[in-house]
Nucleic acid binder design. Structure first.
Lengths: 116, 116
DNA sequence: CGCATACTGAGCCATGCGGCTAACTTAGCG
DNA sequence: CGCTAAGTTAGCCGCATGGCTCAGTATGCG
């Protein structure tokens, strides 16, 4: 278990920006060029390109240059990492609430986690 | 749909740091004081406290001061937001692959999404 | 009371982020 | 060939982040 990680930092960072999340959302509906993706946003193209780079280096998207156009496609694989982390987290948390539940129901002390 | 969001920026940002993810993981096993949480890390307590603040303002954790000790507890609710976003994302993406599948199987053109 | 413990606040510093403009490169079209 | 369209590179700017130290504050124990 816990094999996910790796670029988890970068993926979470990539998703922490609304512009980038919007791009991801858009790419969910299919591939698009940088220009197409940039169109809904006010910012300069160069600024927007930085977001694309962040998404790409984090592994959230893949891009290829065809002619003078750069095509971007979603890399759903990257989100599995987030999903996996979340699942592990929930597993830890749920096993804890399970123990708590047993403790409450049984009245026995099952609740010390500091090894002192 | 899409009711989650709100502090999604902050939550993703909070989770983009390994120290903070480790804290979240630890808190999954139960509440802890700032000092307890800080112990495994090299950094100064004041530096560590900033991480706690980030986690708190993002809504990932809740803290209360009892005596001179500040207790931190996980706020699993916050992760539901991430989970929700992820689910929406996947929904978009899967409806797209469904359409693609139909297209491939039927041979009809079902694949234009730009309204031009 | 006095002292150690557990934070807390203020403020410094280097780096990184997210925006910008200006100038350049390539590709496609006529 | 020459012009336009689509990126791309380089570099500037202000602000946020994540580390640090040093000097409080306040609680609990003896």
């Amino acid at each position: 278990m816990a094999q996910y990680a790796e670029r988890l930092d970068e993926v979470f960072h990539a998703l922490s920006d609304p512009t980038r999340r919007a791009v991801v959302r858009r790419l969910g509906t299919g591939p698009a060029s940088v220009g197409e993706l940039a169109e809904p946003f006010e910012m300069a193209l160069t600024s927007f390109l930085k977001h694309i780079r962040v998404l790409e280096t984090s592994g959230c998207i893949r891009t290829v240059k065809r002619g003078r156009v750069r095509e971007c496609v979603l890399e759903p694989h990257a989100f599995a990492a987030v999903d996996g982390w979340l699942a592990e987290e929930r597993a830890v948390w749920e096993s804890r609430t399970d123990r708590l539940e047993r403790f409450v129901l049984s009245g026995t002390d099952d609740e010390r986690e500091d090894g002192s």
